[in-house]
Design a protein around this nucleic acid. Structure first.
Lengths: 350, 350
DNA sequence: CATCGCTATTGACACGTTTCAATCAAGCTG
DNA sequence: CAGCTTGATTGAAACGTGTCAATAGCGATG
């Protein structure tokens, strides 16, 4: 079946004006400042709009305005549940402010991030919420020079002097996880990390070490760090082998994972080798994605207010957009929260 | 710290032209058909572009063209891993075709879907990949009348005469799940459904019934259907109570869930009541999202080629965009695949 | 009645592109 | 050398808006 020929000419503001017997300027006013136009004409114009099924053209709109009214959201990985929750928050908040969100993802690749930011520049986006892939802000500064403001999300090391940011205290999260494990009697702890180029990983590790320090353990040599290529379940699964290296006597008593997906993958890898948490070792994750509560045993993890930080970031951005000039950069800090489930337990001699 | 004043005037194609000592038309040619312009001038223009750090304005571009060059992707729920995988496929394919994707989600709400489609009309999007929330195509037809073509994804009942579509055979999926359960000796089967307004749910159920039929069971009264409000883990969890109603002798021998999230939620609910799969009853999911392989026991499920159907949908759309007029609507059918894991086992008397 | 003040409306212009017919330069043919 | 062809470049027009100074209408004031 062939598609219908695209015959319908696009009706514009001029056609509406002609139909309503009024000037284009008046139609524009009806659309944008209805209070300025007399009720009678307003009704007549609205009638014409309905009759012609007029839909306004946002290209012309944003060309004239010099900027679009939609904002970009740049995430590290669309398939990661943590980010989709954040995205949900951003989107809901944007919807309330009458803005549309364009979702882009960098796949943790600096080059793709660069391309995405360039795209936002081409679109003359109103602003952006960005989760940077590294601590290099040159591209971000370039964007701001072009008049496109942004808010940085989930990155503590991107200078607060160049933009607003929303951040969850990763150090506190690592600390909480460490204290929890120590209180259970574990002292031989492995940190299963994603790429150490991600600040999140580094700081969570630092938090863990701080917990060891305050308890008089050797935080430098005491914790073993395994760096994987990405924050995915596949990486965690694959890392199981390395985690267990050294045999029953030397293997870690507990593993703290940089995120839940790594932890879930690790649990699977352990299971395939006949081991399980918490019986053979304790496992802690990070993020508290939905499935953490669904697996058996439940995954002990450090919860982040995912949805809320999404909302907060968008709120900050909207504030900056509504009040250019007078606006000051802000830095919002959220606290993580330890959620204890079944994957951790007191240490028992093997 | 205050943001810098937005002083930098936006440089346009005219500034570049002036700088390179050439007409605006030539600059445009350098950008769009470099082969038409002499090498010497081309280099001069490119130099000017670099010096002025010119970034082209896509508003002007699409105003002139009458259409934008980005496509919309409308999904039912961004936080559902199934959809994010599909989105990944759409996005990758679009990137290869040099198009950008704008992600929208309807949250399974017809009103939000309507608003999203209207938004695409305002943006004069090049096209759209849509997962419709119901079988009402009036809004979709309206969109096409306005010159915006679309491809329907994951919906078998949206008339093939009005547009291309990509579909995974849900009936075959339900059938496969049913046969598997029957071969294990189960005959008292419950179908844990999402909203029955979703065609996916209805057809998977029909497939299950067909499996019962072909084995001489009473497919009409034999299968109990529990309809939940949404395809989420929370719904599955909550439904556990109802699933178990009737006590050990009357409770189902197996539960076939409309998707994996329902299944995972159900497994959790069962666990909290001291029951487990496959010991007390078998559980089958649908979709094969990543975590299905991570839980313990692994979730038996019907796998869909998520990433591939995303790519296929975008490919179909691109074909229609590149060849308006000569194009015929196409319907691509994919086959699901049963993945047997640990959550199903042969029936044993309680 | 002339003037003022107010509101409602108009009309023209600018935003940044792309396109296309027209022009220009230069090389080639007869 | 005149005429032709080819290839490179130009200039103007158009896309659909929003803005803003100017105008028109009209009742009230002096």
């Amino acid at each position: 079946m062939p598609p219908p020929a695209n015959t319908a000419r696009n009706v514009g503001i001029n056609d509406v004006a002609a139909r309503a017997g009024v000037s284009p300027g008046t139609v524009s006013n009806v659309l944008n400042r209805p209070e300025r136009v007399a009720e009678a004409t307003r009704l007549r114009v609205e009638e014409a709009i309905r009759e012609l099924d007029y839909v306004r053209n946002s290209s012309g709109r944003s060309l004239r305005a010099g900027r679009s009214d939609s904002v970009g959201l740049l995430v590290l990985d669309v398939t990661n549940p943590f980010f989709t929750m954040v995205a949900q928050g951003v989107e809901d908040q944007a919807a309330e402010a009458g803005r549309t969100v364009m979702l882009l993802n960098s796949s943790e690749d600096p080059e793709r991030q660069r391309r995405s930011l360039r795209l936002l520049a081409e679109q003359r986006a109103a602003g952006a919420v960005v989760m940077p892939v590294d601590d290099d802000v040159t591209d971000l500064l370039w964007l701001r020079e072009r008049g496109i403001p942004w808010v940085v999300l989930d990155r503590g090391d991107v200078g607060a002097d160049v933009g607003s940011s929303v951040y969850v205290d990763n150090h506190a999260g690592g600390l909480a996880a460490g204290r929890h494990l120590i209180s259970l009697g574990h002292e031989r702890i492995t940190f299963l990390s994603g790429p150490l180029s991600l600040e999140q990983c580094r700081v969570r590790l630092a938090g863990l070490r701080a917990a060891l320090d305050e308890n008089g353990f050797d935080s430098e040599n005491g914790v073993r760090v395994i760096e994987t290529g990405s924050l995915t379940a596949a990486s965690g699964d694959k890392a199981a082998e390395e985690v267990l290296a050294g045999g029953p006597r030397r293997r870690p008593q507990a593993v703290f994972c940089a995120n839940d997906q790594l932890a879930l993958g690790l649990l699977k890898g352990l299971g395939e080798r006949g081991l399980g948490a918490p019986a053979d070792l304790s496992v802690v994750g990070y993020d508290d994605i939905d499935v953490a509560a669904l697996v058996h045993p439940g995954l002990t993890t450090v919860a982040q207010p995912k949805y809320e930080i999404g909302r907060a970031a968008m709120r900050l951005l909207a504030a900056e957009l509504d009040d250019p000039g007078g606006h000051r950069y802000e830095r919002l800090l959220f606290e993580p929260r330890l959620v204890v489930r079944g994957s951790t337990a007191a240490y028992r001699e093997p």
